[in-house]
Design a protein around this nucleic acid. Structure first.
Lengths: 140, 140
DNA sequence: CTATTTTATTTGACTTGGAAACTAATATCA
DNA sequence: TGATATTAGTTTCCAAGTCAAATAAAATAG
């Protein structure tokens, strides 16, 4: 029997993909009734956090590459959730802002996201969760 | 200041997505020179593990939904990596098999995947890794 | 200052993914 | 057995993502 015969589910890449998949599916399900995808939710969370962000900064924070973000923002502008504004200082940059509709939607969405958080904290105890967050941040 | 103002990066969904993204990107980079994507690699690992698998079983193990797998397998058959065989017992089922080219490719690919594993174990100590795997499996 | 390079974002061609409809084979049951 | 239901996999249609090239503004060098 080959000494190397490691089950491939052991690869961190696989374990992460599996967990990510189920958690995402569950959150996506909750977001569905708000007619929004996870990526758009991340964008809105980033913007709702405070100051306007440039496309570049937003892409990094919302875990999207620039061209995917650009297209997503096109749709979100269509839907009236978000607003593009050329930056005063540097005309290459675009600042993104949540519209008031966008902010309002976040208020409706948050309870569902929090419900999702609660079901996750039912699965894992507090220390596991803290440790998990710490370890994941090292990988990011 | 709102008592609720939790940084959204704290959401497990976000932390998982972030870690998954960087780990996947890094692995994808290594697989690139073999001309293969992560999903195809997962399929090949599943099949290389041993017995032929049905599409359904393979889809679950390789973390793909059936239609995505069906299309991926089309491409992999084109590339000569994999072979479809209608099951004897139940003619609705299709058994997937790695071709000898497919097996050969796995031999070339494995060292790079193992290199990736090693860089990850440089970032995390053994216990963290074990714990991470355990926690992730609870979420899957 | 003009020319060149770098940076920020968008566009376009092409690939992949997802949901639901469709096909074909087997299972169930009157 | 014949009719219906269920299951496995594929296909279709559309939405979303990728990669590389294009655009346009700012920074830098000569």
């Amino acid at each position: 029997m080959s000494a190397q015969q490691k089950h491939f589910e052991q690869h961190l890449s696989y374990a992460l993909a599996a967990a990510h998949r189920t958690v995402s599916q569950s959150l996506a399900e909750r977001l569905k009734k708000h007619g929004i995808k996870i990526e758009a939710w991340r964008v809105m969370e980033c913007l709702d956090a405070g100051d306007p962000l440039t496309m570049g900064e937003l892409a990094r924070r919302a875990l999207l590459n620039p061209s995917a973000l650009s297209k997503l923002v096109d749709r979100m502008v269509q839907d009236g959730l978000v607003h593009r504004k050329v930056a005063d200082e540097d005309h290459r940059q675009v600042n993104l802002l949540l519209t008031s509709l966008g902010r309002h939607r976040m208020l409706q969405i948050r309870p569902d996201v929090e419900a999702e958080d609660r079901t996750l904290s039912d699965i894992l105890d507090t220390e596991s969760l803290a440790f998990l967050r710490e370890v994941l941040s090292k990988l990011s």
